[in-house]
């Protein structure tokens, strides 16, 4: 079985955001595999460990993404592809078109990705890719089980409800928290990763004309949210504090719940 994992590199979740010259500064920032994509990488490796096959990690992004792909290789992926080209804009439409071009030439039984990227929060590329490849998809899965060689059952987290779906491969899935617990790369894994195939591709290599990946959206402004100032720590004994707080809030009961 051939499993493709689409993944991106994002800021570590601990990082604070600093805007410099209108863009988010990357200086001194620690980068990681997008946490949701990490679940996808882990799931792909587990599938391979259980049933055999090959795991290819694919990323579209700047050259620094190579590091995230190396981590995926160190975790146990077999091969990595980095599609990097200055002519690919920061736009989900564009990225999905680039990936679709790659996958059209390289078919997989299963494609896994993250539920969304914690930087852009867009959550578009994987589902767009499924649609472009005419593959069925289920997003936000918390469990994946094979019921036959080419039929799987998945559990999807739908805002707290659990949906159970069944579908034939090839298909695409996006990972939600709870799918698994990603491993840390082992030292032998890190050493082995250095010898694994790593391919870097440009737009020309995947056969895309830059005119076909013009951005559909543009950023006009980037800014930090207003800083939340610390408020007041209430004083007095606890019952007094509780009464004070309720007095400060001026709530009104409404049909859809209480409001301020």
């Amino acid at each position: 079985m051939k499993v493709g994992v689409i993944m991106k590199q994002t800021f570590d979740t601990e990082e604070k955001i600093i805007i410099h010259n209108g863009i988010i500064s990357e200086e001194g920032v620690k980068f990681v595999i997008n946490p949701y994509d990490e679940y996808a990488v882990e799931e792909a490796i587990r599938l391979k460990e259980n049933a055999g096959g090959q795991v290819v990690a694919i990323s579209v992004g700047p050259p620094r993404c190579a590091e995230a792909l190396r981590t995926a290789l160190a975790m146990g992926a077999d091969e990595a592809i980095l599609i990097t080209d200055d002519r690919i804009p920061h736009d989900e439409y564009a990225v999905s078109v680039v990936l679709a071009a790659y996958f059209a030439d390289n078919p997989f039984d299963l494609i896994l990705g993250g539920n969304f990227a914690i930087d852009t929060g867009a959550g578009q590329v994987a589902v767009r890719l499924a649609e472009l490849l005419q593959l069925p998809h289920v997003s936000s899965i918390t469990k994946l089980t094979f019921i036959s060689v080419e039929r799987v059952q998945v559990e999807r987290d739908a805002e707290g409800d659990l949906e159970l779906l069944e579908l034939d491969l090839p298909a695409l899935f996006t990972a939600q928290q709870g799918l698994n617990e990603p491993r840390y790369p082992s030292l032998p894994g890190i050493l082995k990763a250095k010898k694994k195939p790593f391919q870097q591709l440009s737009l020309d290599d995947v056969g895309i004309d830059p005119n076909d990946v013009q951005a559909k959206t543009n950023r006009a402004e980037l800014f930090l949210p207003p800083v939340r100032a610390a408020g007041q720590i209430l004083q007095g004994d606890l019952p007094e504090q509780a009464a004070k707080l309720v007095g400060l809030l001026h709530i009104t009961p409404r049909p859809g719940g209480t409001s301020l």
């Binding site: 800021f11 604070k16 955001i17 805007i19 988010i24 914690i118 930087d119 852009t120 929060g121 013009q214 951005a215 559909k216 959206t217 543009n218 950023r219 006009a220 402004e221 980037l222 800014f223 930090l224 949210p225």
Partner: peptide, 17 residues
């Protein structure tokens, strides 16, 4: 207007078409 980095920053965007 939409949040990025889970609301650590915000961006304003337009559509090209």
């Amino acid at each position: 207007t939409r949040p990025v980095y889970a609301g650590k920053a915000l961006e304003k965007k337009t559509f090209a078409q």
